[in-house]
């Protein structure tokens, strides 16, 4: 059985549904080099047949290390990049670059980026940045109404309406991220893609931004895709959590199940190595090995070189998703065979 659905939730209810989504990047050397030195084309599979569904008003967290395809997935969903294969559906409708030209989908799907220093135009006042979606979707009938709406959004994210006249450099990192959230909210979206929204922030500021995002979710009934490399943050924010490794989704479970009883050996490793306040004086004996290069992924299961449970089958055959009894999936031969 494949995990084209999250079995716990009937697919009809999902707001966002992704089926076997893939994205390949051609990283070949220039053709002249290839011809002269007889080098082959090279392709990176940044995203490899990833499937999941998100129910309305819920949060799907995605964790994984650099290069695992988290951000590629976010960009495909936000319509900033076209997938090479598979389908994305939003409220049952096909969503691809063409659909992103459809203003209703574009308005409904917004994104908050990691670096608030890079995601705001430094030469635009906050009012211009936050007001831009209002203008683009004709949500304000005149300039005065736009100003009022921007002022309202500023208050909503915990800033003062007067701040709208200022420029990004006049704000701290946390305040800038609030502005980025205000801009994402301006078009009254239903689905917010958050790519490492607090990774650039200090813990005390992070707490405030996470609380804000939670409150807004309740207030506006938002659905989140919450991407982070920080497991504690994902645990705090998500209803379900997916774990990615080298472009594949290796495990997807309801948050509590995933953290209480992780099934995939990689998930177990990740949870073990989270630096935690409860492990005082015990630098955890970490698993050896590193994330392999996506340019040259191992055959079979991509995790096999680091996996303590790997056998011959794992080295040649790629594991497919197995549905878990409590809902969710895991892609691991060892789990499927009952070895772990």
């Amino acid at each position: 059985m494949t995990a084209t659905t999250t079995p716990a939730h009937p697919p009809a209810q999902s707001l966002v549904r992704v089926d076997k989504l893939s994205r390949r990047f051609d990283v070949s050397p220039p053709w002249i080099t290839r011809t002269l030195y007889r080098q082959p084309r090279r392709v990176v599979r940044a995203l490899d047949e990833v499937s999941f569904a998100i129910q309305p008003k819920r949060t799907l967290g995605l964790v994984g290390e650099s290069g695992c395809g988290k951000s590629t997935l976010a960009r495909c969903l936000a319509g900033l990049m076209s997938p090479s294969g598979g389908t994305m559906r939003y409220a049952g409708k096909r969503m691809d670059l063409a659909a992103h030209n459809d203003a209703t989908v574009r308005r409904a799907v917004q994104m908050v980026f990691q670096d608030p220093y890079a995601s705001l135009n430094p030469r635009w006042s906050v009012e211009e940045s936050v007001g831009d979606p209002l203008r683009a979707f004709d949500l304000a009938k005149d300039r005065k109404e736009m100003r009022d709406m921007v002022a309202e959004l500023m208050v909503e994210v915990g800033l003062s309406p007067r701040d709208a006249q200022k420029y990004p450099h006049q704000f701290s990192g946390g305040q800038r991220q609030r502005i980025a959230v205000a801009r994402a909210l301006a078009s009254r979206p239903e689905f917010l893609i958050c790519d490492e929204p607090t990774s650039a922030l200090d813990v005390s500021v992070q707490a405030a931004v996470l609380n804000l995002m939670r409150r807004l979710q309740e207030e506006y009934g938002l659905t989140y895709l919450f991407i982070s490399h920080n497991l504690t943050v994902v645990d705090h924010m998500s209803d379900d959590v997916g774990v990615m490794y080298l472009g594949r989704l290796v495990e997807l479970q309801p948050t509590e199940a995933l953290f209480d009883a992780p099934r995939h050996p990689y998930t177990q490793l990740l949870i073990q190595t989270v630096p935690s306040l409860d492990t005082i004086g015990r630098a955890s004996a970490p698993l050896k090995g590193e994330v392999p290069s996506p340019l040259n992924p191992p055959s079979g299961c991509a995790f096999n070189p680091r996996c303590p449970f790997a056998n011959n089958r794992c080295r040649v055959e790629r594991p497919e998703a197995t549905a878990l009894p409590g809902g969710g999936m895991v892609a691991c031969h060892a789990v499927e065979e009952g070895r772990i």
Binding site: S204, A207, V233, D235, H236, F259, S276
Partner: peptide, 15 residues
């Protein structure tokens, strides 16, 4: 203010 795994807080205490 640091989120902890399994804490299941509705809101993080913030300064």
């Amino acid at each position: 203010a640091i989120p902890r795994i399994g804490a299941r807080l509705k809101e993080l205490p913030q300064i």
